[in-house]
Design a protein around this nucleic acid. Structure first.
Length: 156
DNA sequence: TGGTACAGGCCAT
DNA sequence: ATGGCCTGTACCA
């Protein structure tokens, strides 16, 4: 399941990217000690360029071709997520009401998100706290979520 | 099919 | 601050 096409640098971690054809289909957070790719093809270079722009300016819209794969419900949730502007947050409960479903179902769909950052699942928090990230409720993933929120907050 | 596990929420102590 | 029951989806037997 792992085996990424390229590993890129990020300020708080490394990112493993997988492509299918010309489209990005998967993005994973990896530990800081993961060796970074030295050779980048055109699509990887484009992705790296867009991400760099985002690290510089959280308001920068990431312009890359990506194709998320999931159930119809998940795609519906993810599509809704992408309407949340950078620097803003929503809760699972609010989204659930909006979609006519349950908060827990929204959380599960967020966890299944194969393209974090591009699909801003980190902008969804629990009604009473931070909530989880990448299918977990503690540990490194939560640090990443916190980092991303802090990064986007700097844009005010 | 039924049974369980979730990135939550809410109302009762 | 804690524990219970609710919710909709996904995944596995």
């Amino acid at each position: 399941m792992p085996a990424h096409d390229v590993i890129l640098t990020a300020p708080m971690c490394r990112l493993g990217a997988s492509f299918t054809g010309g489209a990005l289909t998967r993005l994973d957070f990896l530990p800081l000690d993961t060796p970074v790719s030295t050779q980048l093809d055109a699509r990887a270079r484009q992705l790296a360029r867009e991400l760099d722009a985002y690290w510089q300016n959280p308001a920068h819209p990431i312009d890359v071709l990506f194709v998320p794969q999931g159930t119809p419900f998940q795609l519906r949730v993810w599509r809704t997520l992408m309407a949340i502007p950078a620097g803003q947050q929503t809760t699972y409960g609010t989204l659930a009401k909006l979609l006519g479903t349950a908060p827990r179902a929204v959380g599960q769909a967020c966890g299944a998100n194969p393209l974090p950052i591009l699909i801003p699942c980190h902008r969804v928090v629990a009604a009473s706290g931070l909530g989880g990230f990448m299918h977990s409720s503690s540990g490194a993933p939560l640090d990443v979520k916190t980092w991303l929120l802090a990064h986007e907050r700097r844009a005010d």
